[in-house]
Amino acid sequence: MAALHQGWAIQTRVIQALIIRELTTRFGRENIGFLWVMAEPLLFAVLVGLLWRFEKGPQEHGVSIIAFVATGYLPLVMFRSTVQRAMGSFSANSSLMYHRQVKILDLILVRFFVEMIGHMMAYLFIATVFYALDEFPWPHDFGYLLLGWSYYALFTLTLATIVAPLSEMSEVLEKVMPVTTYLMVPFSGAFFMAEWLAPDVKAAVLWSPPVHAMEMMRYGVFGDAVYPHFSFVYTPAWCLPVLMVGLMLCRHVRRVMMVE
């Protein structure tokens, strides 16, 4: 028990330190510095939201279109950039393995945390600003919103643990991954509610774990204005076995990795 406690203390400190290092190396101290972490999702969500706003009018299926796009885009961008940055994260940071306290999983966790917190900041920012402008509703149920967000984050982390070691094993993955994340877009649930789709398409889309998380978040934000379709167990039940495979892959990579 004492070992667990000490280990936890060390790991949190290591991760904190690595997050600070990651922020500094990635964004520097110039300009707005680490605030750049929320610039990309912010721009994405706001600009696409405004585009849709002018293209399709203020509401779609009875919910504010800007809020709908923002709630869809932010998790999607989190997922995409996390997976993107997970690639090559081992070889880029391999010198850190020189320190005994730094474990291979920390490298993935650090990048994942930076993205997740950055997108949470962006979410908070957008929601506050658009709430003030009356384009974002007061969340119906924070519980569903948070649970959906954590499911989405779990799915993101799971894929990151798979992609990071695989990218060390094969160069091809690096080329294929952007296309794959792009093809993931229809299965991310970002631009629709499952209820709006044709029954067979809906059934197909509900095989995808992030859709459940997204529906949950949408229900948390819009409440009874939307008909969510989600299962509380599907996303974790999908993620946990895959996460296990990912952790095994990380372990394998650690053994074969060259540390300079």
């Binding site: 600070i20 101290r29 680490f34 605030l35 917190i117 950055g118 949470m120 900041m121």
Partner: peptide, 16 residues
């Protein structure tokens, strides 16, 4: 969540 966000802000400020 708010703690994480606030922590990151503070880290960013301390960097300066």
């Amino acid at each position: 969540c708010l703690y994480f966000v606030a922590w990151m802000f503070i880290v960013g400020i301390l960097e300066h």
